[in-house]
Design a protein around this nucleic acid. Structure first.
Lengths: 292, 292
DNA sequence: ATATTTATGTCAATATGTTTTCAGGGCGGA
DNA sequence: TCCGCCCTGAAAACATATTGACATAAATAT
């Protein structure tokens, strides 16, 4: 009997090596097959795994017990855990930011939540869709309208300020929905509407999206992880993870996505934008002279 | 109406995103749970996985069929394949943001810059100063004024919206400096002024800071890594790292810091804030009734 | 307010996966 | 060559996972 006090952290690979001496011929055959394409060869059901290695199921079952597992399911789990750890490795390292604040400080919990949100948000961006959306936002053959909700109004404003520097023909639709019909009146096919809709989703915005798409306007939607109903109408939808330990939702990830889109749109029409920036700068300098 | 010809290479994550519209409420619940700890939350048996997400097994089964899998086992397999591919794929993906975007894609460079900015910003926060600033911002014995510059106006607006929910006596000083004297008129000792000043620093804001501090107002300054001249006058200064690969500065870290401050201020006066939130909510519901 | 549709969970059946039992067979030793 | 041990896989027994049918609950429209 093998009284092998294996550390709980031992990998299956190590377990096999340590127990290789007590394995029988066909058990070794399976062990080799597993090590050959590790850990893929151990991830399916015992039946399949055994067949692939050219041995019988009882052989596998007996072997994993020799390795110290109660049964095949436990062995299977162990392999999965290893695989997972391998993938999630670097992420966890970054979770603890370098700061003198104690780990329990509000700031740390906050930072961790924000990091997660950014990761999730980023992982859910479809890069092709992103590129297309950037192209739509940069397309000056049509107008660009920007609109936000109660909270996201500020983001829409930010978007407006920057897009105005990137391109001409940009309009910020103010939050007061009473004035929206005026804008709608002039919307035509080829125009783009950048919308922000974070929960709690606003009926006004949905109506606006309906009317705009009916007029052939392309909608680019920035929403949260629970997805605004506008998504059904939008040409491009981006989901931002927004949960933080507080009574309201974070817009850090929203901001990141927005800035990424602005940056991409800027790149899209670089020579023109560069010229705009220079002219804008000159104008600011002129204004500054007045103030002095 | 799911005639969605998904490429065979689509990840489960993408499948979820693409089919999110047709998912029901509890299916979404499971989808979120899966995305939350992806792909770990999908690797066990359907029974366990469903229980962890707080839904029934048929819900999960129905969902994976909506995603285009024949049954749960196929879904399970697909997740495994992904995980495997990730491990065996390009060794040590440096960027380690889990995204399908190629490493050279704009998005990846952007994400990396933002991450660095957040780290730097966070590392430079003095947690005691942070706590004090939060207390100042939450102190309702004086008024709270918020002001920003040309670009940061949007952030000031965001701050205003949230602080208004947290406490009473908040004022957003609009960007037009012509109106500032009116506000200055009423500022007294014990008031707090939250200022945003990112390069290029605005002379207007410096003048405002001078006049305000002369009246005994506490200034909380949010600036960039190169530090606005207002810092000399401010009681608390926070530096945000803002450089990204673009012609302008990023405000993602600024946003994070701002939100952290709001969250801390909220905590500072929790019972009162909670009551405010509830009243605000009730008011919104009342408004919503009008719209229907 | 009521009817209809849709979504959800409980339960049962079916299928699949896992373990145990057991008989045949290879191999070394006498 | 024969005996006995242990290895091995077939197949049965068992456990668990998966799916489908149905009833109830929720949402929506009338």
């Amino acid at each position: 009997m093998t009284t092998t006090p294996i550390q709980p952290t031992a990998t299956v690979r190590e377990l096999i090596r340590d127990h290789y001496g007590v394995l029988t011929q066909s058990e070794r055959k399976f062990a080799q097959a597993l090590l050959d394409s590790y850990p893929a060869a151990g991830l399916a059901s015992i039946t399949i795994v055994a067949a692939n290695a050219g041995v019988s199921t009882p052989t596998v079952a007996r072997m994993v017990q020799k390795l110290g597992f109660k049964g095949y399911p436990q062995f299977h789990q162990a392999l999965l855990k290893e695989l997972e750890a391998k993938v999630s490795g670097p992420t966890q390292r970054r979770a603890n930011w370098a700061s003198e604040a104690p780990a329990t400080h509000h700031l740390n919990r906050f930072a961790q939540a924000v990091t997660q949100n950014l990761e999730q948000t980023f992982a859910n961006i479809d890069s092709d869709g992103f590129d297309q959306a950037a192209r739509d936002l940069a397309d000056t053959s049509g107008r660009l309208y920007v609109v936000g909700g109660r909270i996201t109004r500020a983001l829409a404003d930010y978007a407006f300020t920057h897009f105005q520097a990137v391109r001409e023909r940009v309009t910020h639709m103010t939050a007061s929905s009473a004035t929206w019909p005026h804008y709608l009146l002039d919307m035509t096919e080829g125009d783009t509407l950048l919308m922000f809709d974070i929960r709690r989703y606003e009926t006004n915005l949905l109506r606006l999206a309906e009317l705009a798409t009916a007029r052939g306007v392309r909608v680019v939607l920035i929403t949260d992880q629970w997805v605004s109903p506008i998504a059904d109408l939008a040409r491009h939808t981006f989901n931002c993870w927004v949960e933080i330990p507080s009574a309201w939702d974070s817009n850090v990830s929203t901001m990141m996505l927005l800035e990424a889109l602005i940056a991409a749109a800027q790149e899209e029409r670089w020579p023109a934008t560069r010229e705009r920036y220079e002219r804008l700068d000159a104008l600011f300098n002129a204004t500054r002279l007045f103030q002095k």
